[in-house]
Computed example of a mutant assay.
Amino acid sequence: MPFLAATPPPPYTAVVFTSVRAAGGPRDDDEAYAATAARMEELARQQPGYLGIESARSGDEGITVSYWRDAEAARAWKQVTEHLVAQGRGRREWYATYRVRVATVERDYGP
């Protein structure tokens, strides 16, 4: 899968999830964290209105941007049961802090 999402012409919705992993947690939990992240990507791809995802991590800091047809599709993804469970685990176990930002993409260009 390419790193850059192949998005359609705007407008569309971007959900930006920026996080800092909790320090001092059991690092053997990294496998569970990675498996959950992979499952969330797989599950997101199955949702109506999903357009793509881009994700990067450096040490404990990470950013994931998921792209959706519109804000309604992004809101629906937030409410998927398995995603809600993962969100709860992230708040309790994996993240020292995080931010979610939702934006409408108005321009999209590159080489």
Rank of each mutant, 00 (worst) to 15 (best):
L51G: 14
M40S: 02
R21K: 15
R69A: 13
A37L: 11
V102C: 04
G110P: 06
A71R: 10
I53R: 06
L84F: 04
V20S: 13
R99A: 15
Y67L: 06
A74V: 05
I53T: 10
A6R: 10
V80R: 06
T7I: 04
A44T: 05
A14I: 00
A37F: 01
Y95K: 09
V85N: 02
E42N: 04
V100G: 08
A34C: 03
Q47C: 08
L51R: 08
G52I: 06
S58R: 11
Q46M: 11
R69H: 13
A38G: 06
E72P: 00
R69Q: 14
Q79E: 15
S66K: 01
H83R: 05
E106S: 11
P2C: 02
R69T: 09
P11N: 05
L51H: 09
W68G: 02
P11T: 00
A76N: 04
E31S: 12
I63P: 09
A103H: 14
Y98N: 13
L84P: 04
D70K: 03
A34T: 10
A14S: 12
A76P: 02
G88D: 12
A74M: 03
S66C: 07
Y109R: 04
P2I: 06
T18I: 12
E82S: 08
P111T: 12
E31K: 10
T64W: 02
Y67F: 13
E31D: 14
A103S: 15
W77H: 04
T18L: 10
V100Y: 01
F17V: 00
T7K: 03
L43M: 03
T18P: 00
T81C: 03
D30C: 10
E82T: 01
G110L: 09
R89N: 14
R21T: 11
A5N: 00
W94R: 10
R89Q: 11
G52Y: 08
D28L: 15
P10Q: 08
G110E: 09
A76E: 03
S58A: 12
P9L: 14
V102G: 04
Y50W: 11
Y50C: 05
E54D: 04
G24E: 07
E93G: 06
P26A: 15
G90F: 07
Q47M: 09
T104I: 04
A14L: 01
A35Y: 03
